[in-house]
């Protein structure tokens, strides 16, 4: 049985590609910004396209900050994509006065040293040995900001996958059934589909009592 997946309606994100990718895996996601649904859903996708300040603003206005924090802190099945991953962090150079969800102990800064920005295209993802969902491969990125590769991530139980464009940066993080990707798994062809499938399997396992 595929889990009940809720896609967070942020109003600033393009959800068509995520929806299409999940459908190809046999999952029909529901779009919602209802805090109770986000709290209770088997699995939640926090998509992200747009700006950090606008994204946080929408989460706050919809009352989704607390339910999303709780999900990530408990390791409940949650997938954060691109800006969604950045929103998990403490703050972003893109909007310095706006705090993020603060569940991943790191900061977002502009990618430096890249020959051209935005960083558009396929790049190599290299996971830590501790990663269980993330594997080595090429994934599709579309961003100008990225998470700092802080040692605090590992200290708080996150496993990290890295990529390189001008400088090394955090390509993705995972902990329990929580997966945060700077790249777009929904646009990363077979690599992305396989990753989404592993996340859905992890979600199903978590729900059947395999983890709390």
């Amino acid at each position: 049985m595929s889990p009940d997946v809720v896609l967070v309606r942020t109003g600033v994100a393009n959800v068509a590609s995520v929806t299409a990718a999940l459908r190809r895996l046999g999952v029909e996601p529901r779009l919602s910004d209802d805090p109770a649904e986000i709290r209770g859903a088997a699995a939640v996708v926090l998509p992200g396209v747009g700006a950090f300040g606008a994204g946080m603003g929408r989460l706050e206005a919809a009352g989704l900050v607390t339910p999303l924090r709780a999900r990530v802190e408990r390791g409940e099945p949650t997938l954060a994509v691109c800006l969604g991953l950045q929103l998990l962090g403490l703050e972003s150079e893109e909007e310095p006065r706006v705090p993020g969800l603060g569940v991943a102990p790191t900061r977002t800064r502009r990618l430096t040293g890249a020959p051209r920005l935005p960083h558009f295209g396929w790049n190599l993802v290299e996971p830590d040995p501790g990663c269980t969902m993330l594997t080595a491969g090429e994934a599709y990125f579309a961003h100008s900001f990225r998470l700092d590769d802080s040692p605090a991530l590992a200290a708080e139980g996150w496993s990290v996958a890295r990529s390189l464009e001008g400088e090394p940066f955090v390509a993705a993080i995972e902990r329990g059934a929580v997966l945060g990707c700077q790249f777009h798994p929904e646009l990363s062809g077979a690599y992305g589909a396989a990753l989404l499938e592993r996340w859905l399997e992890r979600a199903a396992l978590t729900l059947s009592g395999g983890a709390a």
Partner: peptide, 9 residues
């Protein structure tokens, strides 16, 4: 096209 492919468009 979007329903059928998992690469950027």
């Amino acid at each position: 096209v979007r329903a059928a492919i998992g690469i950027p468009l």
